[in-house]
Design a protein around this nucleic acid. Structure first.
Lengths: 252, 252
DNA sequence: CTGTTAGCGCCTTCAC
DNA sequence: GTGAAGGCGCTAACAG
């Protein structure tokens, strides 16, 4: 009794043809006002819900974007998702989110899922740069944008942080605040190479400043804080200057 | 040249029939090993991707769950999403996330979207309890679970916090730490009635403890912190005892 | 303006 | 084990 109400049931009940119901749904202008409200009423009565699967099948794809982030709990991605949804909304589209949870298998799974569902495009924060699967995805025609801190995103459309500038900015700020021994918390160095380079550069500008790297398995706020709390004379200071300026875009 | 590769192209190229390709995809056991790998190879060569829209249309629904949260940036929901995805994975299903952003319009939009896409079920953190739309959704047959702090979730399947217990626990903890003037940060009181009640109860158990309510528009961590920083003698203290025990389930 | 027709791409049931 | 036919629910063209 649920999704079993089809467009043809509505047509029968309203005494019109199947095509007219379709018009009511998609091109209301082409229908006489009388027929329009009659059909609308039947739709409500029967609780008809358009089957978007059939619709998209016919139309060759829908208006949904797929977005894959590393971790929904990460405020960076949360903000990204938020902004994407808002932007999509203005285009009459919607964004569905998948969290890879830093698991390659999950990432692949969502990629496949979204591709099979024929999303209009995908926004991916790749776990490890553009994998073969991601390349194939684009070659097959799915519009793609990558969120990545890696330099090696090839010719993909990318929105990324300028890690070098960010690292420099952050450390400079700390040094200006009078700090002299600075901990750099982050994943494996090769994953945050740019930030580390920038940080070292800032570090070298003032003598007597020491920089130490602490590896944190996950990139959660909580992890960072836990690591920090074990640091001697660790304290919270004011916010860094806005880093918005360190975002860089590349169109591939 | 993208999604234009259909099952029939594969069949032709591999010199088998359409039905056989379908079997390779869904019931590999029924296909001779020879044919199997031959078809597999063609699938890779052609870059065939099964059209899930057609598949679900035929099968009458897919294996995807829709989840609607108030705000992906909220760690509570992030954790919820995370856990849901993991659970779904074990069932061979996937969860797609939508953030209503506390906007009724968005909530409705995602509900409609997911229903039209014939999701297997929905997990909703309703903005304002079970609306008429949500009721209809269930009546039409979509399996539903609500995440809600409201008492008035009727006979819906619900997973919620025991707000009263939580408020009591939190304030008791603060009092034990020696605090005497406690700020209660949260949305409008009617939305957090239970927590407030519990807080007051704990407050009443020790004389000289004062409780003040501060309304925060959004329920973000940042908001809470900002509000807190304006409070005299405000400081961070150790974590509260695990509140896992304050989760309650209801099956409707 | 409204009715009719022909698929979208796939899966399933039945013969072979 | 494999092949052919029918239809899931809908939309886009036309014909009326």
């Amino acid at each position: 009794m649920a999704g079993s109400v089809g467009i043809r049931d509505v047509a029968a009940r309203a005494g019109v043809s199947i095509g007219t119901v379709s018009n009511v749904l998609n091109k209301p202008d082409l229908v006489s006002e009388e027929t329009l409200i009659k059909v609308q009423r039947v739709i409500d009565e029967l609780g008809f819900v358009r089957n978007d699967l059939a619709r998209q099948l016919k139309m060759g794809g829908g208006t949904t974007f797929g977005m894959i982030v590393l971790n929904v709990a990460n405020p960076f991605f949360a903000e990204l998702a938020h902004a994407s949804e808002t932007a999509a909304e203005q285009l009459g589209c919607t964004v569905v989110l998948g969290s890879s949870d830093q698991l390659p298998r999950r990432e692949e799974r969502y990629i496949d899922l979204f591709e099979e569902q024929r999303v209009r495009g995908m926004l991916i924060a790749p776990l490890d740069g553009p994998t073969a699967r991601i390349r194939r995805l684009r070659e097959r025609g799915t519009p793609l944008v990558l969120f990545s801190n890696h330099r090696d995103t090839g010719d993909f459309c990318t929105v990324a942080m300028d890690g070098d500038a960010g690292g420099y900015l952050a450390v400079s700020h700390l040094v200006e605040q009078g700090r002299r021994h600075i901990a750099f918390l982050g994943g494996p160095l090769h994953q945050v190479q740019d930030r580390w380079t920038g940080a070292m550069r800032a570090c070298a500008e003032t003598s007597g400043v020491k920089l130490s790297h602490i590896d944190t398995a996950d990139q959660t706020i909580a992890d960072g804080r836990a690591a920090g709390s074990g640091w001697p004379d660790c304290r919270r200071i004011g916010p860094t200057p806005s880093s918005r300026r360190t975002i860089c875009l590349r169109s591939g």
